[in-house]
Amino acid sequence: MRRLLLVRHASTAAVRAAAFGADEDLDAAGVDAASRLAARLPRGEVIVSPARRAAQTAAGLTVSAVEPALAECDFGAWAGRPLAEIAAEAPDDVRAWMTDPDAAPHGGESLSALLARVRAWLAAQAELDGTAIAITHGGVVKAAVVVALDAPPSAFWRIDVSPLAITELHAHDGRWTVTRVNDREDTRAFSNPAKPRVSERSRGEVGV
């Protein structure tokens, strides 16, 4: 059996600004929260996305490999820009990107391309045994859930993935099952209980 824990990286300025991710660093809160990640994880092989924010999230872990397939969707010309700004400038492009899985108005990857990339990586992982921990991005985690469930591409938009949330998949005989999604239980324990929670959709990094 392959046990796979997918962990979205900790918070960045783009996450807090609801912007498309670029290759940015973690913010101060993200660095602090990432320092507690190891306590939430089992022993296992640690694989990370090539992005700086993923490497910084994994700073307290022993990394086995850097995996290009775990990179966030290529957002092309939209990288680093807030979704609201782009929607104001080019609403038709944003609408096409969110309704047509083959659309890539930003000049980067389409949702279909992202799903294909993650599907190929999961197929290879399903042939392995043991536990693996993948430090990656919101778009990749959501794509992995869609692939594991054999769901339509539109299901991608109905999955929430918060910074440092854990999503767990198990592979038996080459087939994936979903054990948990967006597990934030331990990260919430460190938040300020007096501060109202803001939904991930309103402030989270845009993952396709």
Rank of each mutant, 00 (worst) to 15 (best):
P50K: 13
F75Y: 15
I133Q: 05
V94N: 08
D102H: 11
D23G: 05
A143R: 09
D100I: 05
L149E: 06
P91A: 09
F75P: 03
P105M: 01
A104G: 08
A18L: 02
A71T: 10
V15I: 01
A19W: 01
K195W: 11
T57Q: 12
D102S: 11
R197Q: 12
A28T: 09
L149I: 00
L26A: 08
A87L: 07
D183N: 07
S202C: 06
A144F: 10
F75S: 13
A132P: 06
R43H: 14
Q125D: 01
N192W: 06
V140G: 07
V208Y: 14
G174S: 11
F190T: 14
A88F: 00
D27Q: 08
T187W: 02
M1D: 12
F20Y: 15
A33D: 14
R188F: 12
A71M: 06
R52M: 04
V118W: 08
D102T: 13
N182R: 06
D74W: 09
T179R: 09
T136V: 04
D102L: 10
G44Y: 11
V181K: 03
E205T: 11
L122M: 08
A171D: 01
E185H: 13
P82I: 12
A17S: 13
D25T: 10
G30W: 05
S154R: 12
V48L: 03
R180T: 11
T187S: 14
P68D: 13
W157T: 10
A77E: 14
V31W: 10
A22E: 04
T136R: 00
R40Y: 00
V15N: 15
A77C: 12
A71P: 04
G44S: 02
S110R: 03
E168R: 13
W157E: 09
A132I: 06
L26E: 09
H9I: 03
F20Q: 02
E205I: 14
L5V: 10
A18H: 14
E85K: 05
V94Y: 01
